[in-house]
Design a protein around this nucleic acid. Structure first.
Lengths: 196, 196
DNA sequence: TATATAAATACAAATAACGTATATTTCATA
DNA sequence: TATGAAATATACGTTATTTGTATTTATATA
């Protein structure tokens, strides 16, 4: 069997560009084919329909996200450094999948797609919670706070980091992340002597 | 007759937001009505169809552009200052109408809309050329260069000013405009003594 | 209460998108 | 050059969406 001469990738790239800009509903298969420089028949060789393309793209996106997370989590740096790196990552990927696109998917009640997203989300939450519990066990973070609350709070943080009202307070995003993280790790109490 | 309770404006605003983001083709009238919080019947009270809404918005946009230009041109400042103000204006309005939206209009061969745009464009070019000729007449700019070439070159300048490759060379846009303008007014030759 | 105005609903007609079948073209290989 | 696999272009019936209008229902105002 011959190696795919990049047509699959061309379709995926064209679809991603269009979906991410306009949502799924507004984009037609013929449009994707045109942008990919591929005929409709070729498109149907690889994907059974539009939803299948979107599903593939969304799964790919989440997979690469999980992979990036895993790499950070299992790297040999302090827990604080890990959280910092994750927040950096989240920020740079903020527009990876726009809220608009998600709304589009849910609003149009495409059950297959929303189920796909829900499934992956659950998987990611499971991974995150396990990792938090592990970190509690080995004493990297305090264990008198529910992992679920930490996760909720972390999600809240990432939202804050893309909120223009917060961003505009700081002269650069690194300073913002650093300050927010300090608050997350140490709270509002002034540091005691001996504390890092 | 009662004053329109902002429904016309609501429709125009919703349509503009959608058109400017997704182009005209991808947006339906029902969508506009929904976003405007107005029923379809009310929409048809004010506009006969989707093209009519787009036409109104495009004309309004060009009109306000011409108005802003006129204000600058007839203000009591030096010609150099005028050009600078115009370039500032052009830059801040760079995304007023995206190339994508224009492509959408031309690609879909909506004759009415493209004619509307062409008509307005011609009017604007006429105004610009007249003003350049007048400036030549009263000696504000040299008269051994065709007005048409100056206009062409000015258009080219505004395109350059939104080109990221150029923008990234300068630490701020004002410096860029100033340098580009100096080149436009005085060319590459070093200034002679006595020249401003 | 009467009257005007907008919203909601329903609908036929037009348009666009879908997915498939078939004919044509391309192009590498025998 | 002839052959065959694979992509493209074309055509087509089917379904879904959009359009523009008509009719009914709600809402506010004088």
């Amino acid at each position: 069997m011959e190696k795919q001469s990049g047509k699959f990738e061309a379709i995926a790239a064209a679809a991603k560009s269009l979906f991410w800009k306009h949502g799924i509903r507004r984009v037609s298969i013929e449009e994707i084919c045109h942008d990919a420089g591929v005929s409709k028949m070729t498109c149907y060789k690889y994907f059974s329909n539009k939803t299948a393309i979107a599903k593939y793209l969304i799964e790919e996106m989440f997979e690469s996200g999980i992979k990036a997370y895993k790499e950070i989590y299992h790297s040999d740096i302090s827990y604080e450094e890990k959280v910092k790196k994750m927040l950096d990552l989240k920020m740079s990927n903020a527009h990876e999948m726009s809220q608009e696109l998600l709304d589009d998917i849910y609003k149009n009640q495409d059950e297959e797609l929303s189920e796909t997203i829900e499934t992956i989300k659950k998987r990611m939450i499971g991974i995150y919670l396990d990792d938090i519990r592990e970190a509690q066990k080995i004493g990297e973070i305090r264990n008198d706070v529910k992992p679920e609350f930490m996760l909720y709070f972390l999600n809240n943080l990432t939202e804050m980091l893309t909120d223009q009202r917060l961003v505009s307070i700081y002269s650069n995003p690194q300073q913002m992340i650093s300050e927010v993280m300090t608050f997350f790790f140490y709270g509002i109490m002034p540091r005691k002597n001996g504390e890092k």
